[in-house]
Amino acid sequence: MSTEYRTGRGDEEFTYRGYTLDELQDMNLEEVAELLPARQRRTIKRGLDGERQKLLDEARSTTEEESAQDPVRTHLRNMPILPEFVGLTFAVHDGQEFNRVKVEPEMIGHYLGEFQLTRQTVEHGQAGIGATRSSKFVPLK
């Protein structure tokens, strides 16, 4: 991989549980699964279903430049982020639309959906006509 990833701590190279990103990307799926947290490890050990395998195959065949132009679209918010996803851009569905998520090395072991929120912040306006009895005397602009 041509891109070098560094941690935010000086000149240290990124490592995940003692392995560099290049070492992680050279491992097969079962070896990577042993390093992941329990829930993600269980997902992989039980076997990726058809949709997850299709997403994995599509991610493997896509380059960083291609995904920057046309991100890999997915509804699979519960897909664990694997080392081979680093550098790719995914369009993750949040229930209404697809939003871009660029995968960084620090995201390994998390789920795609963790980086795309499904709930939006509430911005309350002023009470309108007929809202409640207490808002009856709020001046209208």
Rank of each mutant, 00 (worst) to 15 (best):
A131D: 13
Q120M: 09
K136H: 14
A91N: 06
D26K: 14
A59N: 11
D94C: 08
N28M: 07
T3I: 14
R52T: 03
R41A: 03
D57F: 10
Q96I: 06
R73D: 09
R73W: 07
D11C: 00
P139T: 04
Q120A: 06
T89N: 09
E106Y: 12
G113H: 00
R119P: 05
G8K: 12
T3D: 14
R77T: 14
R100L: 13
T3M: 08
G47R: 01
P105G: 10
Q69P: 00
Q116M: 10
A38D: 10
L76N: 04
G109S: 02
L55H: 11
D94N: 15
Y19V: 03
V101N: 08
A91D: 14
E97I: 12
E65R: 05
R133C: 00
M107Q: 12
R6N: 04
A68M: 06
E64Q: 07
Y16T: 01
G109I: 09
R100Y: 08
N78K: 11
T3C: 03
M107T: 07
L82F: 02
E51S: 13
G18H: 08
R100G: 00
I81E: 04
F14P: 12
F115V: 01
T118Q: 15
F98S: 08
E31F: 03
L140F: 03
K45Y: 13
E114S: 11
L76V: 05
M1V: 12
T20D: 04
F115S: 01
R6H: 13
Q40L: 03
D22Q: 15
M27A: 02
I129M: 03
G128E: 04
G95F: 11
E12Y: 03
E66D: 13
I44N: 03
H124R: 13
P71W: 11
L88N: 06
F98C: 06
E58G: 04
A91P: 05
V138S: 04
R73I: 04
R52P: 01
R39S: 10
R9M: 02
D26Y: 05
D70A: 11
Y111E: 13
T7P: 01
E104F: 12
S2P: 01
Q53L: 15
P37C: 03
T63K: 00
V122R: 12
V92H: 09
E58R: 14
R6Y: 15
R60I: 08
M1W: 09
E123K: 11
Y19Q: 11
R60T: 05
G87Q: 08
K102L: 14
A59Q: 12
T7M: 01
T62W: 07
A91G: 15
G128Y: 00
K136P: 02
V103P: 06
P37D: 04
A91Y: 08
H75E: 10
V72P: 01
G50W: 07
Y111T: 02
M27Q: 00
